[in-house]
């Protein structure tokens, strides 16, 4: 069960635009084991989607480039496979991705039902008949809370969240070994979200899939994930088991800022407390710690020298000078 399915080592990705180089991913390493769920949270623009796209070699052709590191699925280096192997053996077959924008994966001129049908037919290992597949299309739609009768409609007749559910239904129907879900539930209300998350768990139980779950919702991470990592400016600033990340104690100042910015259901405040300042320009990353400009604890050292990763326990790591010179306790609240 505990086989490492996906292993990323020291990944660097750049986007080359006409004028400048965007350093989107800067030294990301992570592992996902089968049967487990890894959550990724982080600032808008931190490089989460870019990391996911690179796993399927879907970076934009002309502009996006992996400039360093390795991505292995099982023991195969993804970037040593041929296009053909990639398409037939990996994409959709062993790895499925739910994109942030559902229209990336839906065809606007094909009915919703036929799109699900096509996906099922492509993965029809049990040689089901046409009727069996059609019945499965109905089932799949009902599972995500859409009446089967609506399968003859086109994507533009669906609400934002309904389109997202169709994409999720297709991705799960393929029963992938690795599911990459890029903010799969942001367009969904909490009850439909719960339904979709439950489906992911069922899939995991049934075929032991590994899940890479990107989300802005720390509540979803708390409920779904076994491990989590926090990204900032293309780096992993904190990683660990779910307990490491959610238990008060030692944390990266950015992680603390994220938890502090959530509106609290149990108490009323007039103003929310965002993290002051903005993420550094990814075309001109500073020499020191990328978070130093916004960090309430930053010292001279932080502005000059980039921190190195410190292990606090077997699983918990932090990229921050405060922890490299011996342990100081920092609390969540």
């Amino acid at each position: 069960m505990d086989e490492i399915l996906l292993k990323i080592e020291d990944l660097f990705i750049e986007y080359q635009t006409e004028l400048e180089t965007v350093r989107a991913v800067n030294g990301v390493s992570l592992e996902v084991k089968s049967g487990r769920t890894l959550g990724i949270v982080g600032e808008t623009g931190a490089g989460k989607t870019t990391t996911c796209l690179s796993i399927l070699r879907l970076l934009p052709d002309r502009t996006g480039r992996v400039t360093g590191g390795n991505i292995c699925f099982r023991d195969k280096n993804i970037y040593s496979l041929s296009e053909e192997e990639m398409r037939t053996q990996i994409c959709g077959e062993k790895i499925s991705m739910i994109f942030q924008d559902p229209m990336t994966s839906l065809n606007p001129v094909m009915t919703v039902g036929s799109q699900i049908y096509e996906a099922l037919k492509y993965h029809n290992h049990e040689n089901k008949t046409r009727e069996e597949l059609e019945r499965r299309v109905d089932e799949v739609l009902e599972l995500v809370g859409i009446p089967a009768e609506r399968k003859t409609e086109y994507p533009h007749q669906f609400s934002g969240g309904m389109k997202q559910r169709v994409v999720i239904a297709i991705a799960l129907a393929c029963e992938p070994e690795l599911l990459i879900a890029d903010e799969p539930t942001t367009a969904l209300d909490v009850t439909v979200q719960a339904q979709v998350l439950a489906m992911m768990r069922d899939l995991q139980k049934k075929v032991g899939s590994a899940i890479l779950l990107i989300t802005h919702d720390l509540g979803v991470v708390a409920q779904m994930c076994d491990d989590a990592l926090v990204m900032y400016a293309g780096e992993i600033v904190e990683s660990g088991s779910i307990e490491d990340i959610f238990t008060p104690g030692s944390h990266h100042p950015y992680t603390m800022g994220l938890f502090g910015a959530i509106p609290d259901l149990d108490s009323a405040v007039d103003r929310l407390t965002p993290i002051e300042g903005l993420m550094p320009d990814p075309t001109k990353l500073p020499d020191g710690c990328y978070f130093a400009d916004r960090c309430p604890y930053a010292e001279e050292l932080c502005k000059q020298i980039h921190p190195t990763r410190t292990s606090l326990s077997g699983t918990h790591t932090i990229l921050c000078h405060r922890f490299s010179e011996g342990l100081k306790e920092v609390s969540h609240e």
Binding site: V41, G42, E43, T44, Q100, E183, T186, H216, L218, G257, L258, A261, I262, P263, L272, T273, P274, I275
Partner: peptide
């Protein structure tokens, strides 16, 4: 579509 800090 925004992270919780920018959302705030």
């Amino acid at each position: 579509a925004l992270d919780v800090s920018i959302q705030a």
